[in-house]
């Protein structure tokens, strides 16, 4: 299963997806790093026996998963809501009680 090369254009596409700005000339060295790192991790493709097993995300799952659920009750202690003033004070910009950001132009989710 050959994969496409990971050139500067690909790096730029990924950077846009991650909302990371790349300065002019920054994509090329990153593409080189990518090439080396992905060349190294390509060893995993030789592990044919991996096809037979399920992906592992939760290495140590809880013995009783239902016990991790939270009661639908009022917040107490560290789970309580923050004071509004604290929310507003932490924000880089706000208008009254609302947080302010530059206009969201037509760009969907």
């Amino acid at each position: 299963m050959p994969l496409p090369p990971h050139g500067p254009d690909e790096v730029r596409r990924i950077a846009a997806l991650a909302r990371i700005r790349l300065a002019p000339g920054e994509a090329e060295p990153l593409a080189r790093d990518f090439g080396r790192i992905l060349g190294y991790v390509d060893r995993l493709r030789a592990r044919d026996e991996a096809d037979a097993v399920e992906p592992l995300v939760h290495a140590v799952p809880p013995a009783e998963p239902a016990s991790t659920l939270r009661p639908d009750g009022p917040a107490v202690g560290p789970a309580a809501p923050l004071p509004l003033a604290q929310v507003i004070a932490a924000a880089p910009d706000h208008d009254g009680r609302l947080l302010r950001v530059p206009r969201v132009l037509e760009e969907g989710r």
Partner: peptide
Amino acid sequence: YYQRALRVRRL
């Protein structure tokens, strides 16, 4: 990449 890595993680 991602899925493959998780499978080898299980191995």
